[in-house]
Amino acid sequence: MRRTWAVILAPYLWLVLFFAVPMALIAKLSLSHTVLAMPPYAPRLDLSHGLDGISAFLGGLSGATYARLTQDRLYISAYLSSLGFAGVATAILLLIGYPIAYGMSRFGAGARQALLLGVILPFWTSFLIRIYAWIAILKPAGLLNQGLALLHLPPLQLLNTDAAVIIGLVYAYLPFMILPLYAVLEKQDESLIEAAQDLGCTPLTAFWRVTFPLSLPGLAAGALLCFIPMVGEFVIPDLLGGSKTLMLGRTIWTEFFADRDWPAASAVALALLATLIVPIALFQRQQAKVLS
């Protein structure tokens, strides 16, 4: 078994260099301050001066960026509204994903395979394209309002609103909700339901007391798999939301590309990371359980 240790060395070092070190750099930069230079932040670690360089560097770090962020209402509301958007979208995803996954699991084996492909296929299709498709539907003279006009219904103003962001989130993440739910529902032993019904349960009670509790691991996996990336979503609020739609992913992007405030972008990223660390740990533990 010693030699198999060696095979992990290459991916291990790769991930340390390209994942762990960059994360440390974000932490470091969030404690720096902006300067008019390239790169636009200070202090920089200068190892050519040995220990003096390190202590000068450590002395230059400060929590000022964080202090600035907590005092700015814009960041606080971006933070809260990110959690709000992700929470609402996750709840809607559970409500519409569960019946779909449950319905899929009741089909025959051959049809189930085809349906599974049907749900996976959009996931492989470009995210950007799928969101773009909604612009043509939701815009004022778009396809939705043309349809409403045919039915003599008043038009809806959806594009560039928070509602459009929720629609986009639900649409883009639906496969991520259906797949883990389907995985647990499909494996469920049907004789358990039969037993419950033999013992006098109505189909609905059997569902609530047997099927639903047994599907909770899939429900948790789906909810985490959707909630975590949605909190930091950038493309959807940027393309479907209005100028007032605040989400952290968009804040990081703007701080970085438009305002060139790298320390602020890093501090926001780190705050986001700190928020997500518990759900991520839960997700990882659950995946490890499923795989073992």
Binding site: I228, I252, A265, F283
Partner: peptide, 21 residues
């Protein structure tokens, strides 16, 4: 952790961190 975290971490964080590297 390094294998699972990038699967769910917001891409904005991954992109920013790699750029800093």
């Amino acid at each position: 952790g390094m294998i699972y975290a990038p699967l769910v971490l917001p891409e904005v964080i991954l992109g920013l961190s790699l750029l800093l590297l």
